[in-house]
Each structure stands twice: as structure tokens, then as C-alpha cells.
Amino acid sequence: MKLRDIAHSRTGDKGDLCNISVIAYRPEDYALLCEVVTAARVKAHFADIVQGEVLRYDLPGLAALNFVLKDALGGGVTRSLRLDAHGKSLSSRLLDLEIPSPDDGS
């Protein structure tokens, strides 16, 4: 199962920081999000793109997680050479994350 099956996501940027939200469609999937979409997992998923640390902020009231990825945009939108200098497409990459399905027991 992909993260995209249980959550939606949006990317924003400020300077060289990338901000990616991950929001559960159903509140009951929030616990699974917290368990599998760790900061370390996100850092590893973006290993080739993000140079700096990854922080996670938990929002149980919204059934959402908010990730901040540092040194993530090749210098930030104003100077990055990347085709997607804002990193707008990075949420789509995060939703491609493979996660255990709730009835896997894994």
C-alpha cells in the first residue's frame, strides 16, 4: 500500500526549507501515519534530494503530520537550478512511500 491510499499532502517552501504536510483522510488512520511516517523514514526517502535534517510536528487534532526538510531545495527557489525550484512536486514523491496495510499485521 502507498501512503497516497490513506493520506493527502501539500508542499510549501521558505528559503531552502521544504514544508510537507501529510494529512490522513480518516482520523482512524492517524496512528498508522505516526507509526510509519517517521522523520527518519522521510529523510531516507528523500536521501538524494534533501541534504539537511528532517523534523516532524504532530497535529492529532487534524490527524496530520507536518514535516520540515532542511537544505532541501538546492539553495531555495530564488537561486536553485532545479526544474521544480519550489519543490512543489515533493509531496507527490512522499505519497509514493510504501507503507504496511492496516490488515497486514506488519
Partner: peptide, 15 residues
């Protein structure tokens, strides 16, 4: 869902 995505857009630490 549209409101939640925008609420967390570019805010970094929500607190």
C-alpha cells in the same frame, strides 16, 4: 481537506 492542506502550508512549526 482543502482547508487543512492550506493551514499547514509553509508554516513549519505549527505551534
Amino acid at each position: 481537506a482543502t482547508v487543512k492542506e492550506q493551514l499547514l502550508y509553509e508554516i513549519h512549526d505549527p505551534a
